[in-house]
Computed example of a mutant assay.
Amino acid sequence: MGVDAFVYCRCWQDGRTPPAPVGPVGFDEEGHLSLLVSGHEYTEADAAFDGWIASACPHELMEQAGEHLANWTGYRLFQQALGAAGWSHFPTLRAELPSANGGRMPAEAAARVLHELDYFEQRAVIDDEVVLVDEATEAVALTYVAAYQGVLMLGPGYRAGVDPEGFFILDPDSDPPATLFRSTRFRQRVLPGGQVQFSDEEKSVRIAMSPVGGTGTPPERLCLRTRHQSPAAFGYIVEPLRRLCRAAMTTGNPVMWC
């Protein structure tokens, strides 16, 4: 799951498609090309419309561009970098980037976004990244996301994550949430019965939760690192945004967030 976006082509708008087999067809209130009389249940008319969308022009689903921008963590990290560089440099991105799935950005905003992306890549100064790494390999296990208050792992009876003060595990059932464990350098050991032992020089706890470190063999020793970060690290989202903006400028159609 994450943030995706697309821009419609102009084939239908410019009369370069065969007529829709059902109708009326047009852009709905949210900006989607739709069968305007569609009801709550999926009907044969909806199926005929979907088939027409899929085959009426050379563009897949009548999209001039379609992009996956990032999962939600990667998306929030990009917003975090923009904020660190100064939102005053990115007024259009601040106004137009979605806070949730859905919505649209008007085509006239695309040129301004491209200009702001140029500034981000060429001139922005952003914060160092705060990460929890496998001490043996330096592989990143967790990255601090300010929008989540550092919390990246959650389950029954625990919330865990990393912030500038280290790795932490909270008890969400207490008010306020109690800190069960916090450390900048520690060892984890997977125990039988779904428990994990976390220990450093001062404390050792056993908690029923998933181990830190994703799939495969969990790292045994982890530590906090602060590492230099450059705007180039965000090419995964900057380049798709550029392609969407160029498509919006070409077609005059909005960027549809989804």
Rank of each mutant, 00 (worst) to 15 (best):
V37Q: 10
V37H: 09
S38D: 12
S38R: 15
S38V: 00
G39Y: 10
G39C: 08
G39N: 04
H40Q: 10
E41P: 08
Y42T: 06
Y42F: 15
E44C: 07
E44Y: 05
A45S: 14
A48I: 03
F49H: 03
F49S: 01
F49C: 07
G51K: 05
W52G: 07
W52R: 07
S55L: 02
S55C: 09
A56L: 01
A56F: 01
C57R: 01
P58S: 12
H59F: 08
E60W: 02
Q64D: 12
A65Y: 03
G66M: 06
E67N: 01
H68V: 12
L69S: 10
A70E: 10
W72L: 15
W72R: 10
T73W: 01
G74S: 09
G74I: 08
Y75W: 13
R76T: 11
L77K: 07
F78M: 03
F78W: 12
F78Q: 11
A81G: 07
L82T: 08
A85R: 00
G86A: 09
G86Q: 04
G86V: 14
S88V: 06
S88G: 12
H89Q: 13
A95G: 07
A95K: 09
A95N: 06
E96Y: 09
L97T: 02
A100M: 10
N101T: 12
N101G: 10
G103S: 09
M105H: 01
M105S: 13
P106M: 06
A107T: 13
E108A: 12
A109L: 03
A109W: 05
A110S: 08
A110E: 06
A111N: 05
A111M: 01
R112W: 05
R112V: 00
V113M: 04
V113H: 05
L114E: 08
L114D: 01
H115R: 15
E116N: 12
D118W: 14
Y119F: 15
F120W: 07
F120P: 15
E121Y: 06
Q122W: 01
Q122R: 15
R123Q: 13
R123V: 13
R123M: 10
A124C: 05
V125P: 00
D127T: 08
D127K: 09
D127Y: 02
E129A: 12
E129V: 14
V131G: 03
V131I: 14
V133L: 04
D134V: 03
D134C: 02
D134P: 15
E135H: 00
E135M: 07
E135Q: 09
A136T: 02
A136S: 12
V140K: 11
V140T: 14
L142Y: 05
T143D: 04
V145A: 06
A147K: 07
A147E: 13
Y148E: 13
Y148F: 10
Q149Y: 10
Q149F: 12
Q149V: 02
G150L: 05
G150S: 11
G150P: 00
V151I: 15
V151C: 02
V151M: 08
L152C: 12
M153V: 11
L154Q: 14
L154P: 00
L154H: 11
G155S: 04
G155P: 09
P156W: 04
G157P: 02
Y158T: 08
Y158W: 07
R159G: 06
R159Y: 09
A160D: 09
V162L: 06
V162R: 00
V162P: 00
D163R: 11
D163Q: 06
E165C: 13
E165I: 02
G166S: 06
G166E: 06
F167Q: 02
L170F: 08
L170M: 10
D171L: 00
D173V: 07
